[in-house]
Write a protein that binds this DNA or RNA. Structure first.
Lengths: 199, 199
DNA sequence: GCATGTGATGTCGTCTACTGACATCAAGTA
DNA sequence: TACTTGATGTCAGTAGACGACATCACATGC
């Protein structure tokens, strides 16, 4: 019995509320306890008090349940690029957007770390994460183009920025000490500049 | 009947030769004709004169058959990084490796384009391509570290280089005119330098 | 207050990717 | 000749994912 089991209450409707949230939490707990591969959708659904079919109505597949929250980060970053001061260069725009987004993770560092541990433990999940980041880079590149940045500069700024973000995030997750993510990102973006300058 | 069907010859062994190659070719043709999603492993295997079980003995999954040749490119690039003149900067090393690798694609541009068309038509295949590129970046970063490059410079040079390569490749595939891939890569790497300089 | 429609869920059946266990049999080898 | 080996076949099973249809609390209109 997980801590999220809810007793039936005659005042409630036909179904307990927040099926989607229950599925997300049940999946997360089971992925942590048993691992992603060893967890079946049937088990997740049962833990959430629902059927397998309902799981697939809320999530496209077994992986997607771990990325349900990523949509907000995505739109935040795109908006941040669109709303940045016009004076900023493309790479500075992307950098500023990522630095601003650091609060998304700083609020729940334990959750972010635990989630990342699940992802790196499964090739399937890494694939999904990579395509999410690729879609993010494409969206940020499109936002840069709307700011008048031409290709391939727009694509390169977005891709390089996402790469810097990924490197920063890995360092932050793996760091023993509790460094600030914004600080790491600043250092990594600086390093990106000096590394690419030497071409 | 595909052009690869082979009549049985009493001089041959128990099975027709090159099962792996027949599977690769049958899969490629069917992916082109019907699309990746609409092709079943049973169909591929039958077209190659083999059983489904044998397909999965040669390839880990339905996607992997399209990436079987990528191993050579991978080792070539890693070797190119390791063998580059010690005087080159990290990003110049990666850049040179990719420029040298252009011959891999220049030899069979039609094949490369057709294969890329298959990949972009399927989300699953894009995921697989992305993780292959991520593994490539990790391997090149490790090769840079063996050359004495510290992190995060090694990771960033590799990731940024792979990003530049991907942008170059997309432009080359999508280009109407038959531009040289090496030329496109040179331009894109130059653009990467100037874009990241403006941080 | 009653009829009616709607939406979230359940039930059932199916397809297909993928895997383990065991059988087969040509070819090489002692 | 006997024995081993390796590539393939056969069979049975699991699990992810989806289409079609049923159910029923709730809202809405009259």
């Amino acid at each position: 019995m997980s801590s999220t089991d809810i007793k039936y209450d005659a005042l409630m409707g036909r179904w307990e509320p927040d099926a989607r949230g229950r599925l997300m939490q049940a999946a997360f707990e089971l992925y942590v306890e048993r691992g992603f591969d060893e967890t079946t959708v049937a088990e997740i659904s049962e833990a959430a008090g629902l059927t397998e079919r309902t799981f697939f109505r809320h999530f496209a597949d077994k992986r997607e349940v771990l990325f349900a929250g990523a949509g907000e980060l995505h739109s935040f970053l795109v908006s941040a690029v669109l709303d940045a001061p016009a004076s900023l260069s493309p790479i500075a725009t992307v950098r500023a957007a990522f630095v601003e987004s650091a609060t998304f993770f700083g609020e729940r560092p334990d959750f972010a770390r635990q989630r990342q541990r699940i992802i790196v433990s499964s090739t399937e999940l890494q694939e999904r994460e990579l395509i999410k980041l690729a879609n993010l880079a494409a969206a940020m590149a499109e936002a840069l183009r709307q700011r008048g940045v031409k290709d391939p500069a727009a694509s390169l700024a977005a891709e390089a920025g996402v790469a810097a973000f990924r490197v920063s995030f890995e360092r932050w997750v793996g760091a023993a000490t509790n460094q600030k993510l914004t600080r790491i990102m600043s250092d990594v973006f600086d390093e990106l500049r000096s590394v690419t300058a030497a071409s």
